[in-house]
Design a protein around this nucleic acid. Structure first.
Lengths: 227, 227
DNA sequence: CGTCATTTTGACCAGGGTCAAGACTCGTGG
DNA sequence: CCACGAGTCTTGACCCTGGTCAAAATGACG
């Protein structure tokens, strides 16, 4: 999951979900904390996320970290470079995964339909990452946090009466490393949204969106005024 | 071309160059200033760059711009999202291009070898973009500019006696929009590298690298001391 | 409960953005 | 061939966003 421009790539990734047959036989369950792979590992499978949340990270020698993406249902993770993984990947929320053999991506003859779907997934990945560039390169802290919440609400928001609720299973540090900020700044941005009446923070890991419209405006750069 | 972690993906993109047959008959020449495509256009071809430099850009409604990538020899540009281009693309330096029909990427049966190469190019693109995330999210201005020069020196640097020289055909504004900075900061960072004796600025569009080692150190975060 | 990690908040600071003025470049036309 | 002018690049002064450091509040868990 990346932070994309609102409306453009709305839920396209999910649309491939159904196309790739949910072969129940080869679905696998992974517990929170498990690592699926490390940077440098040779790629054996791509993983299609059916449920749960994954985290893809990349480290700089001096310890600076970038969360490359979160893997939400509908996402496919593990695209290789020269047959090797290019990030670490671990499980944030117990996940059901459908592994696809790497050969299905690299060779179209065995299973043409699956092959086509995996190639399409790679192309979506490229487009989504391009949007994410814009966010990392050009958006303010407040816009990034609001954009992040917008995407999550669209992708995995749950209706609760009049409002929508979204779960943030990852830590503030994860969000910060994903958005190119610090934990303090993420925390402050959330507080501002709360004080402006845009969201409510039910508990640290649960946000309730009071005004989706205001959140969207905020993600596009309009300043919110305190309520 | 993206800013990648030094040494990791060094020149891998070039390695596919020879593999894709340089079918002379369908090579095309495009003048500086030409647009290859705009965001939203339906994708007819991918373009493999043989010579010259392309620029891929994406705009926010309010005018903020992100240069997604520069297209240098060996790069392939134009990967579609749902059959449509997701960036604008124009020519910075007169370029020789090899167009590949979109069908070759989407359908493996017609030309399996070309198909395989294009898929590999897409995978390299994903890995390179992941590295670029780290740069946009976590590196300082000085590190970004130094990293950018490092990549260019490796990819298109020319030996001139004792030193290596690199051309910057794009404007400072292009570099800024690529690195998530402002033109002023790019300019200042280059001046610092010059005053530190790491580079020489022959003219606005030509940089001579006096100390590749110092440039690499700078790209990884060590501060340079003025010489 | 007590301990330890995470989150929030505050005070302070600096990296880099903004605004403005000069220096360069380069194309055009007199 | 040179003068002009528009665009680009550099430099300086100032300031603001967001980072740093520290401490308090909250939460997780044995």
């Amino acid at each position: 999951m990346y932070v994309t421009i609102p409306g453009e790539t709305a839920a396209p990734i999910l649309s491939i979900g159904p196309r790739i047959r949910p072969n129940r036989a080869i679905q696998t369950r992974r517990a929170a904390g498990d690592y699926l792979f490390f940077e440098g590992d040779s790629v054996k499978h791509l993983y299609q996320v059916k449920s749960g949340v994954l985290r893809l990270t990349r480290l700089l020698e001096d310890g600076r970290r970038q969360v490359i993406a979160f893997g939400y249902p509908g996402d496919i993770v593990g695209f290789p470079l020269d047959g090797r993984h290019h990030t670490d990947c671990d499980v944030l929320v117990e996940a059901q995964l459908v592994p696809h053999r790497l050969a299905a991506l690299e060779d179209g003859r065995r299973d043409p339909e699956l092959h086509r779907d995996l190639v399409q997934a790679a192309l979506r990945e490229i487009a989504a990452m391009q949007d994410h560039f814009l966010m990392l390169g050009r958006k303010s802290a407040a816009e990034r946090v609001a954009s992040f919440l917008c995407v999550l609400v669209d992708r995995v928001g749950a209706d609760i009466g009049r409002y929508r609720q979204v779960d943030l299973p990852m830590s503030r540090a994860d969000i910060a490393d994903f958005l190119g900020l610090t934990t303090e700044t993420v925390s402050r941005s959330l507080t501002m949204l709360r004080k402006a009446g845009v969201i409510d923070i039910d508990n640290v890991h649960t946000v309730i969106v009071l005004s989706p419209a205001a959140l969207l405006r905020q993600s596009e750069g309009q300043k919110v005024r305190a309520a």
